[in-house]
Nucleic acid binder design. Structure first.
Length: 878
RNA sequence: GGGGAAUUAGCUCAGCUGGCCAGAGCACCUGCUUUGCAAGCAGGGGGUCAAGGGUUCGAAUCCCUUAUUCUCCA
């Protein structure tokens, strides 16, 4: 059975059982500092389990794309080496929100696996929770009973598990409950006879593995560690799709299923090697196949590879793939980008976001591959240098510190370093390397944990109402607060019952302002959004937190931010008009100062295009469209209105729609009352931030005015300086060519004058033994000129020594030169002359044996300095 | 969030511990020579050494701040 059909079978099965089939949530999570990627099917229902939102459907099923690469579930280093770990995988799941419970969950799971898919009962095992006295939770008798129905008379197929395996918790606190897992034994008959399957369950055997976890959420863990029964019981299940395919398709490796085989085939064609030849090659191919999926889906969800946070995780995955291909498949040029169409053909139907950005994904991957190969190239050069260095010193162990530097600073992978060393009969000081690595980790960990105090509750209550769309001043009460230490400074975080302050989100920066009670006033420096909480950052703790406060938003900043945000919408609209509908928002930043907008487009914008975009946007400004806001519009309806939704953005069922004329967007930000308030939009820069993504920056209102006025003033200044009444450009062009000609002439004269000076100096030179002493006070406009005269004299053949001084502005300059034939003898050095005479001009200096310079504050001393030089040289040469 | 590194001509880079007036290769322009596979020869143009401060007689080089990029860790 093909994987696509299997997925459909699962969804159809639960549709039959009255479940609503919902689409997969984005794999990339925004606005949640605790989680970067969706790592389980239940993530998108977290709010329901926490009781924050009411479920829309009581029964839900889906196939959820997940990524496990960081945090608790970190499988990255395993992937490829075995046949069942993945970074990105699909999780099939069914949920009951206060509806059915253990009986149905178990019955249906059994019906689906055994009945529909025909997985033989004698290959299946179930586990149940054995109970936990310290939590006062008994053995899960209910699950045991229902499993007995499935395995009549074979209680040895139902195993008991401890808290570690069979009790699921969302976090330190919150919803939790016993779970029941289904395991499958895929070994052949003789193996199964030798060792009974139940002894291998939960023992990391590659062929005896868990495929489905049924979680029964019935408790809530309180902060004090105790459990309380929830009013409603929920079911949360998750089944690894890739594993299920393996079971159904009768394979012993996830990578042998059709999900991966098409990709692996393509990879094998790309590098001209067969899958199954050697273990190393197979690992590399599995790594590439797995990672390609993870990267492609992330990019489709709007997460580009970058140098920190989630973007960096993506980049690392891609690099791991390139590295394996480079080491074991001998691929040294970009190739993964060519596999994207294969992946899209396989999964594009189920995940339309993948299909929609196929070209985009391919380009991004190509770009990343080439840039990493470049990094590798640089590293190779460096390591070659190190090796030849070591060989010269006859050392054959590369110090760990150096290997670590290569890795840490230049991103050169340590395993490659090892490989190259081996080729050169050298080894790596692994211990030293690990030590450095450990240091780095400790350093990061130490600074990573910022010291946040406990929340201090002032009043009961959880949610903050945002009143800032209508009000900029409001009466508020403080619900709770805490102090966070960051960079040695204490920042106080405040949560209100309601607030007019807009919290940073959707690219719009947070409001600032003040809150005031009768006795004090506190500055709010920023407002952020964290885990559904609007947090106000204040510079001090309120002395009486329980007092009544009035919150006032900084109006000027708010208005400027609103203008910029509205301008962003207008520019988005104009960009689509000018460039086409492939333009999609890929990111945006709106502050009171300026706005930044990233969008998909494949080539540089021409001057004309930028002007046209600006024109259209400004036309909309002048048309003075008033703001129309519709709250709680069903998503479907909003989309039919032509509102632009963003891929990878998680929307609720109802959305807020902001409209100015024909520009319609889903947006939670604050906006200008009407477009005319923006005044003027001016694009100030355009550039690329990644393959296929451009960025524009713009300013509005008085900022734009100032900008333009400055430009005009600059031009007028130039015109008046040129005394040009007509064409400034022509005047400048003329000036430039005149200047070039003049410069040539001046240089000619300068060198002629220098020659004259030199001739005079040489004529007045005195002979000291076999050496000619050239000295004098000369006219020079800078130390450079003085130096260049010395350089000229240096060209005169014979044993010469020259010392010259010059008044340069208010200061004095000296230069001493010893010609090459004389310098070679080693009798006299320019530096010692200069050191001897520099005090005369109240200065100091130095240089090289043949040429030295000095500067000082006292031009009156030049003559004495020259005299002293003569004396010194005479002494030295005698 | 923390550490390390980079930023020099249109491009790729060299310039180590401050001082040979800022260099190479490719590209560009002119001329000659040749007309064929990265052509050769001669000559030439092109740099606020990322920006801004500081130390110094002197800074591309040392220090600080900022910006951007790369990289590793969390």
């Amino acid at each position: 059975m093909k994987s696509q059909k299997l997925r459909q079978l699962f969804l159809n099965f639960f549709r039959e059982k009255g479940h609503e089939i919902v689409p997969s949530a984005p794999m990339v999570i925004r606005n949640d500092p605790s989680l970067m990627f969706t790592n389980a099917g239940m993530n998108q229902f977290k709010d329901i389990f926490l009781g924050h939102t009411a479920p829309k459907y009581r029964r839900v099923a889906d196939s959820q794309k997940c990524l496990r690469v960081s945090g608790k579930h970190n499988d990255l280093e395993e992937v490829g080496h075995d046949t069942y770990h993945h970074t990105m995988f699909e999780m099939l799941g069914n949920w009951s929100f206060g509806d059915y419970f253990k009986k149905e969950a178990i019955e249906w799971a059994w019906e689906f696996l055994n009945g529909r898919l025909g997985i033989p009962a004698d290959r299946l095992y179930a586990t149940i929770f054995t109970g936990s006295p310290e939590d006062n939770v008994p053995r899960d008798e209910e699950s045991f009973r229902w499993w007995q129905e499935c395995f009549p008379g074979q209680s040895d197929r139902i195993l008991e598990g401890s808290k570690e395996d069979n009790f699921w918790e969302m976090g330190e606190t919150g919803p939790c409950g016993p779970c029941s897992e289904i395991h499958v034994d895929l070994r052949d008959d003789s193996e199964r006879e030798k060792i009974p399957g139940h002894s291998l369950v939960n023992r990391s055997h590659p062929l005896v593995l868990e495929i489905w976890n049924l979680v029964f959420i019935q408790y809530n863990r309180r902060a004090d560690g105790s459990l309380e029964l929830l009013p409603d019981s929920h079911v949360d299940t998750g089944m690894g799709f890739e594993r299920l395919c393996m079971v159904v398709q009768g394979k012993t490796s996830n990578y042998d299923t059709d999900i991966f085989q098409t990709l692996i085939n393509e990879i094998s064609i790309s590098c001209g090697r067969k899958y199954g030849e050697t273990e190393e090659q197979d690992i590399a191919m599995r790594v590439v196949a797995d990672h390609l999926r993870a990267i492609s889906f992330s990019i489709a969800d709007g997460q580009l590879p970058s140098n920190n946070k989630a973007g960096y995780v993506i980049r690392r995955i891609l690099r791991r793939a390139v590295r394996y291909a480079y080491n074991y498949l001998n691929v040294d040029e970009p190739f993964m980008y060519r596999l994207v169409p294969v992946l899209v053909a396989e999964m594009g139907d189920q995940y339309p976001e993948l299909k929609n950005s196929e070209e985009h994904i391919s380009r991004i991957i190509h770009e990343e591959e080439s840039s990493f190969l470049k990094t590798l190239g640089k590293g190779l050069k460096m390591i070659d240098r190190m090796i030849s260095d070591l060989k010269m010193k006859k050392i054959n162990v590369l110090p760990g510190r150096i290997a670590f530097e290569l890795y840490d600073t230049y991103g050169f992978p340590a395993d490659l370093t090892r490989l190259i060393l081996r080729e050169n009969n050298m080894t790596l000081d692994t211990e030293g390397f690990e030590q450095e690595m450990e240091n780095q980790k400790n350093r990061s960990r130490k600074d990573g944990t910022l010291d946040s105090g406990d929340w201090i509750n002032v009043r009961e209550g959880d949610t903050t109402i945002f009143t800032g769309y209508d009000k900029t001043t409001d009466d508020i009460l403080i619900m709770k607060y805490r102090v966070v230490k960051a960079r040695g400074k204490d920042i106080c975080q405040l949560v209100f019952d309601k607030t007019p302050f807009y919290a940073e989100s959707g690219g719009q920066s947070g409001d600032s302002g003040v809150i005031a009670s009768e006795e004090e006033q506190i500055r709010i420096t920023d407002t952020i959004w964290e885990n559904e909480l609007i947090i106000h950052l204040a510079d001090k703790i309120p002395s009486r937190p329980d007092a009544a406060f009035v919150a006032k938003v900084d109006l000027r900043k708010r208005a400027m931010t609103a203008s910029n945000h509205t301008a962003t919408h207008l520019l988005h609209y104009a960009l689509r008009k000018v460039l086409g509908n492939h333009v999609e928002q890929k990111g945006s930043l709106v502050t009171s100062e300026r706005l930044r907008f990233d969008f998909s487009h494949f080539s540089r914008l021409t001057r004309e295009e930028i002007l046209e975009v600006e024109n259209i946007a400004n036309q909309l400004v002048r048309n003075n469209f008033t703001r129309q806001v519709m709250d709680d519009v069903p998503l479907e309806e909003a989309l039919t209105m032509g509102a632009m939704a963003l891929f990878g953005e998680k929307y609720g069922d109802t959305v807020r729609v902001v409209r100015f004329g024909d520009s319609v967007e889903l947006c939670g930000g604050t906006h200008a009352d009407s477009t005319a308030g923006i005044g003027l939009i001016k694009i100030i820069s355009e550039g690329a931030i990644a393959a296929g993504i451009r960025r524009i920056e713009a300013i509005t209102g008085s900022k734009a005015d100032e900008y333009i006025n400055e430009k005009i003033a600059e031009l007028e200044n130039v015109a008046s300086m040129l005394k040009s009444t007509g064409n400034v450009r022509e005047s400048v062009e003329k000036l430039i060519s005149e200047n070039a000609a003049l410069r040539k002439t001046v240089e000619k004269y300068k060198s002629r004058i220098a020659k004259d000076i030199i001739r005079d100096l040489v004529q007045n030179a005195v002979q000291i033994g076999d050496v000619r002493f050239i000295r004098g006070q000369v006219e020079a406009d800078s130390a450079e000129t003085l130096k260049s005269i010395a350089f000229e004299i240096r060209k005169i053949p014979g044993k010469n020594v020259a010392v010259m001084g010059s008044q340069i502005g208010e200061k004095a300059g000296l230069v001493a030169m010893v010609s090459d034939p004389l310098a070679k003898e080693g009798r006299l050095e320019a530096t010692e002359i200069i050191r001897e005479i520099a005090p005369e001009i109240s200065g100091g200096g130095g240089g090289q044996p043949f040429l030295a310079t000095a500067g000082g504050k006292n031009p009156g001393g030049i003559a004495r300095a020259l005299e002293k030089a003569g004396k010194f040289i005479r002494e030295r040469l005698s």
